[in-house]
């Protein structure tokens, strides 16, 4: 093959790939997956707010469980808190508890409005900011569910998640290239996070010999029943540990192919529901089902 023919072939390959990339990122898509994502996220966070309501002041007020000086030492000082806003409300005559309850109510209100969908981006901005402040006010003991909530709420500020499943025009999702690009960014983010999580797990011996499940399920406070009987059947926790590695490391690849996608959606949601039930992490488990169910259904991939 001469030089000219070779460059012609490479031009075709390059332009073909570029066209595929353009289609991957910009071919107009329905905002329905993003609308579903918004609904799922706000519903789970409302449930979390309801569960935390009784102990809200214990974790956020100066008179709570963790004194402010100690809490300050545990939180990055460059991050925003509700202290300034609460201070302003206190200067207007409110007690600290009333000021914090007011700001907490604003957070719940923004999640409720986000659920309904009208003006989704504005409500997402408010919910994201208040969630971030709440996590950094006092000592929140933020864990994985809060971290993902922060990430997902930030995405909802930018993505057209209010173009579907909106009160008043429920069944008419808008199609746009912004929806397509938004879905792709979220898909890549999820694929990356599962891959890194899986590889990090695989670097520890405990994930290969079943000890990880044995320890987690028998840790006081985690399990809802006695799982010491697993010691007699070590193959079971070993297989479950290996399955977790396969699901997480293979997530991005398996979700890219139609044949494996449906199985991986079921397996991933099964894994998270298992975490929700057996490790008693319901908010984390439910929250992690949301992106998989929203972003990787057959309907999502159809343009």
């Amino acid at each position: 093959m001469n030089h000219r023919a070779m460059s012609e072939v490479s031009r075709h390959i390059f332009t073909g790939r570029f066209a595929a990339l353009q289609e991957f990122c910009f071919k107009p898509a329905s905002a329905e997956p993003l609308g579903f994502f918004r609904l799922g996220l706000s519903a789970v966070l409302l449930l979390q707010a309801w569960l935390l309501y009784p102990v809200f002041l214990e974790f956020s007020s100066a008179a709570g469980l963790v004194q402010r000086e100690v809490a300050r030492a545990l939180v990055d000082p460059s991050l925003p808190t509700l202290n300034a806003a609460a201070g302003l409300l206190i200067s207007w005559g409110l007690s600290e508890a009333s000021a914090l309850y007011f700001l907490g109510s604003c957070y719940v209100l923004s999640l409720g409005a986000l659920l309904l969908g009208r003006g989704a981006r504005c409500w997402a901005l408010l919910a994201w900011y208040l969630h971030w402040c709440l996590v950094n006010t006092g000592y929140s003991g933020a864990y994985g569910a809060d971290m993902y909530a922060h990430i997902f709420l930030f995405y909802l500020i930018w993505l057209p998640a209010g173009d579907a499943y909106v009160l008043g025009r429920w069944a008419k999702p808008v199609w746009s290239w912004q929806a397509c690009l938004g879905i792709r960014v979220l898909q890549v983010h999820m694929g990356l996070s599962y891959l890194v999580s899986g590889v990090e797990k695989a670097s520890g011996e405990m994930w290969w010999n079943g000890e990880i499940l044995w320890r987690s399920l028998n840790m006081p406070g985690y399990s809802f029943m006695d799982f010491h009987w697993l010691a007699a059947y070590p193959l079971l926790p070993t297989l479950l540990g290996l399955a977790t590695l396969v699901i997480e490391i293979g997530y991005g690849l398996a979700m890219s192919y139609g044949r494996t996608r449906r199985w991986w959606v079921v397996a991933t949601c099964g894994m998270h529901l298992g975490i929700a039930v057996f490790l008693r992490l319901p908010i984390f488990g439910l929250l992690m089902c949301v992106p998989t169910l929203a972003l990787f259904r057959e309907k999502t991939l159809q343009h």
Partner: peptide, 25 residues
């Protein structure tokens, strides 16, 4: 770096990894 914190892009994902430690009370 501040944007990374604001967007959550600075997050790491090593849940239960590489091992589960002990519990304290």
């Amino acid at each position: 770096q501040w944007y990374s914190k604001a967007s959550g892009a600075d997050s790491s994902y090593g849940f239960f990894a590489p091992r589960v430690g002990s519990k304290v009370r």
